[in-house]
């Protein structure tokens, strides 16, 4: 297990981690403030990627495409909130699960209808293409580094927004006790809408940023959604800080587990058994991690005090 490989995989893990955080941030806020379980958050990630792909192809410029995709993702999020979600806040979790499941069915099919079933690809922007030498024998793509940097920057901005501004204070208060905030004269409906739209935009931003790295296809948000759930459950639902730490943890554990699990197992098993067991165990690692965390701390690592 060479240091180079370890560094590359750690960077890959970080990249997955910041992406997970961008999606998880919206999800955990929506959950914390509104007690609303939104399965459709993953399709908003997918929509972000599709919008970026479309606008990039139209404008022939990735950054312009990204700039257009963000308000479009925000608009779609607000439209969904207005059409469906606001009618569900007072319902129980089961109704929310079902209705947002309906949205997933619709949107996954709708992107096939609009953009076709074949995966789209987005070229890496020329400004950020190529790779740089990080250390001896280690070259890493610039674009991936940019994704990590952008993700961390957004995370910092978000934490400033939540901890230092008036609107952030309202969001935190809403997460702790929404009826009280409402009783103090805050238009809680508008606050919900704002948080929701913002969360949708963050998920869309994450989708747009990975668009050049993956193939943009229907259902691409589904698996990420499940990972995001793992993140917010480990981090403690409603906690931005918890989501950040858990996202990095899940990103690293998942990536490193897949890369090095078989190698570590080889210390105990013979080569073929280790490779088989490693392949079986690696994708399950984060779920085992989640079960273990919940077993010790049923409310997650950083539970929001109520």
């Amino acid at each position: 297990m060479s240091a180079t490989l370890l560094s590359v995989q750690t960077l890959n893990g970080l990249q997955l981690g910041v992406l997970l955080f961008l999606v998880a941030a919206g999800l955990t806020l929506v959950f914390g403030v509104m007690d609303f379980i939104n399965l459709a958050h993953g399709v908003q990630f997918m929509i972000g990627a599709y919008l970026a792909a479309m606008f990039t192809a139209l404008t022939d410029n990735f950054f312009l495409g990204l700039g257009l995709a963000l308000p479009a993702a925000l608009t779609l999020g607000l439209a969904l909130e207005w059409l469906v979600f606001r009618h569900l806040y007072a319902r129980d979790h089961l109704d929310q699960v079902l209705a947002t499941f309906g949205i997933i069915l619709f949107l996954n099919q709708a992107v096939k209808f609009v953009w076709g079933a074949a995966p789209l690809s987005v070229p890496v922007p020329t400004l950020l293409s190529g790779s740089i030498q990080l250390m001896e024998g280690l070259r890493y793509p610039i674009y991936r580094l940019a994704v990590i940097g952008a993700g961390i920057a957004v995370a910092l901005l978000l934490s400033l927004l939540v901890s230092r501004t008036r609107i952030g204070m309202l969001v935190r208060a809403g997460a702790a006790n929404a009826p009280m905030v409402s009783a103090l004269g805050v238009d809680i409906g508008r606050l919900f809408m704002l948080v929701f739209g913002f969360g949708a935009m963050l998920a869309g931003f994450a989708g747009a940023m990975v668009a050049p790295l993956v193939s943009v296809e229907p259902g691409m948000g589904d698996n990420l959604l499940i990972l995001t759930f793992v993140v917010i459950v480990i981090g403690g639902i409603g906690s931005i800080r918890g989501a950040f730490i858990a996202a990095l943890l899940v990103g690293l554990v998942d990536t490193l587990g897949r890369a090095f699990g078989p190698l570590v197992l080889r210390l105990f098993l013979d080569a073929s058994a280790a490779s088989q067991a490693g392949q079986a165990l690696a994708p399950m690692l984060i779920y085992i991690l989640m079960a273990a965390v919940l077993f010790v701390r049923p409310a997650g690592l950083f539970p929001v005090r109520r």
Binding site: V97, P283, M284, Y287, A291
Partner: peptide, 29 residues
């Protein structure tokens, strides 16, 4: 394990266990 949690945590942890089984099946080459 799941029943130690309630409400939305229960939904998510059963989802996670379901995914575990799914990935185990995928790995059964």
């Amino acid at each position: 394990v799941s029943l130690r949690t309630k409400g939305v945590h229960f939904i998510m942890i059963t989802l996670a266990f379901g995914q575990m089984a799914f990935f185990l099946a995928v790995s059964l080459a």
